[in-house]
Amino acid sequence: LEARLEQAAMLKRVVDAIKDLVQDCNFDCNDSGIALQAMDNSHVALVSMMLKSESFSPFRCDRNIALGINLTSLTKVLRAAQGDDILTLKAEDAPDVVNLTFESPESDRLSEYDIKLMDIDQEHLGIPDTEYAATITLPSSEFSRITRDLSALSESVAIECTKEGVKFTCTGDIGNGSVSLRQHTNVENDAKSVDISLTEPVALTFSLKYLVNFCKAAGLSDRVRLCLSNEVPLLVEYGLSNNSYLRFYLAPKIGD
């Protein structure tokens, strides 16, 4: 494997966004790119990352390899990279280590690190292709704000989407709160628009603790997409350039 990223910031942000949710992960490398799928310990949330080969330049992967990496270790090494450093990942066939180099674009500084790999027996779940009943695309900062504000009151949020819009509601010991958003187009800045596409109304309840965690990815993208269908896991997607993405799935809370 040899994969060169123009901006180390991308990998730094991805790892920052997922390291509190999952600890030891296989980075599955093949000629289409680098993928990661991992569940949190309680099997309530799942992270699915895809960094397409087009996000790297150059990208070369001659043989499929799984790089088992502890994210705490990776975070320690990535802390040594500046955001605008050029980052190159390298691994041999049947590797013991993954090699990372950080090159400063404006100086002759080159740093190089090896991280020991681990054997990780990871359970891969098949995620069915779902036609979601409601898809909401909104500014990622808006979603962060809603989850943060409501998490101050309650552990759970009810998300209701109808043709009127989407409503986030919570009930807690001190009282209750809600935030409603309507579909709207911001003509001056499309990134601030709220798009709602609905085939049938949905109402689901989710743990705010996890949603707050997912919002650590907000720095990766101006926009976030929420996909919901009744009684199935929520998909929260942060799109990256070149069709790469960071997705989170969250199992709902059901019943009373």
Partner: peptide
């Protein structure tokens, strides 16, 4: 309150 589900019930094991 409502009960937290896990993903195993929704996503299939290979």
């Amino acid at each position: 309150g409502p009960k937290q589900q896990t993903l195993a019930g929704f996503f299939s094991r290979p």
